[in-house]
Every structure is written in C-alpha cells, then in structure tokens.
Design a protein around this nucleic acid. Structure first.
Lengths: 201, 201
DNA sequence: GTCTATATCCAGATAGAC
DNA sequence: GTCTATCTGGATATAGAC
C-alpha cells in the first residue's frame, strides 16, 4: 500500500506565488526592457502592493537572480531535450540553431543571461553551476564532432554575434540569423583545416 | 593681406563648455556604465549645479544623442585615417581589427552605438547619416577585396560577436579578440568558395 | 549663464497594524 | 501574508532671482 507523503500545502502555495511573480516579471521585461523592471508595476501585475513582494523575495536583485536561474535552467533543459543526432556535424548545427533561437525569442532574457548590464547584479553561486553545465554540454558537442575544446570560444563568439546583431538591428526579422548554417560551415571548414596537425598528436 | 574673419568668441566658449560636458559624460559612463549617467554627477564633474546643464543641452537624451554622434564620428574618422593597403585582403583584416579595437576599448560607447539599451532613446537623423557612411566604407572595403555586398551582414555578425563576448565575459583580456584574424580567414575562405558561381555572372 | 528653490515623480525598502 | 504609512534617496526638469 502506497502511503502518500505528507505535503506541505503552505509551502506549495508559497512556491506557486513565487512562480507567479516571476512569470509577471518576465512579461514586464519582455514588454518594457530588462532595466525597466520595477516593483510597483510588478506588484500591480500580480494584484499586490509593492511591500508584499518582500514576503517572497528579499530584494529586487533577488528577483533578477531567480530569473537568471530560470533562464539558465530553461536553456539547459532545451539542450538536454535535443534529440540525439548520430551525425556529430548535424548535432553541432542543431546546437547552434537552438542557441540562436533561444537568444532572439527573448532579447531581455538574453541580455540578462549573457551581457553585463544591470548595475550591481552578480548571479549567485548556485546559478553558476547551471551555467557551467551548459558550457560543458557545448564543449561535449564540439568534441563529438571531432573538434578540440580550444575552439569553443571561437564558436560562441561567431554564433552569439548573429544573435546580438539580430536583436539590435532587425528585431523580429532574420537578417542575421539566416546565416547560422553558414557560420557553422565556416567554422567547421576552418577548424578542420587547422586540425590536420592536431589530429596526429 | 589676409583679413581674419570675425570670430564669435561667445559661441566658441559655449561650444568649448559643451565639449567639456560631453568629455565628463564619457568619463562617467566609462566608469559607472552607460545607464548610470545622471545629471547630478555630471554637473558636479564640471563644477556646475544640475540645472545649469540645461543651458547647454535640452535634456538628458540630448546629451546621449550628442555622445552618439561623437562616437560615430570618431569611428568614421578612424576608418578614413586608415593607411591605404594595396592588398585588399589585408585591408579587410585591418578594418576588422580596427572595429574590434574600437569596440573593446570603450564598452559603454559600444553599447550606446551598437545596442538598443537606453529606454526611449532614438538617435537623431543627423547622426544617422554618419552611421550610414560608416556602413558604406565597410561595404567598399569588402568590394575591393572581391566580396559581394550581400556578405556584409555576415561579416558584421561574426566580427561584432567577438567584441560582445569579450566585453561581457573577459573585460580587459583577449580571450575572444585574439581570434579576429581567424575569423577573417574563415570568412574569406567561406566567401571565396561561394563566389565561384557568382564571379562568372 | 548660473544659481537657489522647488515641482513632480519615482525608486527600493522598512515598520508595524491587522 | 498583506496591508497602510512612511522613510530615504534619487531622478529629470522648471521658475525665477541675480
């Protein structure tokens, strides 16, 4: 006979409210920009007075931090959910497309996760582990495609470049993102040329 | 006999003060970040009270706009001052290095010029022409290297990617910028491969 | 042109009643 | 947990004396 573990209904409700607040915060930053987030509008959006938010988060920075964690978890989840591709080059292409899509579909989130733009905000150590895991997955992907880890920075550089140009100069379009596959091709060709020496090591 | 044109000493002084204010503003944003600019600190830095700034600029946005123009003029000047390089590929490499250097040496300026991050700020039409001229110069550079204009976006995408990654994740270092030449090589190899068809048009 | 004084508004955060 | 009331400090901008 299976005994249901006793649930802490109060704690559950609390977590649900926190999640609701974060959802509202995401909506606000998507609509008004990352820096425009303020507790007045946020409280109004969830039907509270501003001080009540402090029952759930210690500060505005704590809200940013929670959002930072959520964003990283979302990206990690997507990478882990990616269907296995036995062709390593195809996998690299897949991973690049995923990152570009993730970036442009929510510029405010991309700004929070990948640029240093909010004065005084440092992500907590907990979140840092998730970010590290994402990097590891990326490097793994390269390695399986026969590319040495040193090339990871080069890869992030050129792929994220498309994202930022797209966000800043053609929001909603595809003037830059349409080059994802080209960029991967370029990258692979370049790396293969230079790998010749490294391979025989 | 050369007659000196009559100078408007009052206007000259005024322009000098405006320039002084802008210099102070650049110092502030370099030190505290682009979004942290405020009239209180700016006035203090030039030995004024905040309201006095309104004798020189109509609004804070007007100050951002003047900075935007200055930044673009500086970039344009650097491109025009570039020594002529008879090797077109070398010229492309030169132009890429210049852009990367310009970006990383002042992240706040790069943010102002190339990202959309200040809420409500739109550069004035006057400035837009300078930005357009810069783009034209870049395309000219590509053309002389035998590369068709359609590749300009791809080039800006990958080169600016290095800049942003460098600024956001390794300020002051060269973890990404050291790949400038690699990126140009990649780009050229990729473009030449695809140009084969286009050339014979 | 520069100042003082002020208007207006907004922010994040806290105290304490209920 | 949520509220009202308040603190404290900040912002941009304007009025008007000098």
């Amino acid at each position: 006979m299976v005994v249901e573990p006793i649930r802490d209904r109060r704690a559950e409700r609390r977590e649900a409210t926190k999640a609701e607040i974060l959802d509202a915060a995401w909506e606000l930053v998507r609509a008004e920009g990352l820096a425009a987030l303020n507790l007045r509008d946020l409280a109004a959006k969830v039907g509270m007075r501003p001080p009540s938010l402090y029952s759930y988060f210690d500060s505005k920075h704590a809200i940013y931090d929670a959002m930072f964690l959520q964003g990283n978890l979302e990206l990690l989840a997507r990478y882990e959910a990616l269907p296995v591709c036995d062709d390593p080059v195809g996998a690299l292409r897949q991973g690049s497309r995923l990152f570009v899509q993730f970036g442009i579909e929510d510029p405010a989130r991309a700004q929070l996760l990948f640029m240093r733009t909010i004065p005084g905000f440092e992500p907590s150590a907990e979140t840092y582990d998730v970010a590290k895991r994402i990097v590891e997955l990326g490097i793994e992907r390269l390695t399986r495609a026969g590319i040495r880890p040193e090339y990871f920075d080069l890869w992030t550089g050129i792929v994220s470049g498309l994202v930022w140009q797209q966000i800043a100069n053609d929001a909603g379009g595809d003037r830059w993102t349409k080059y994802v596959d080209d960029v991967v091709d370029m990258f692979l060709a370049h790396v293969n040329k230079h790998n010749k020496r490294g391979r025989s090591k």
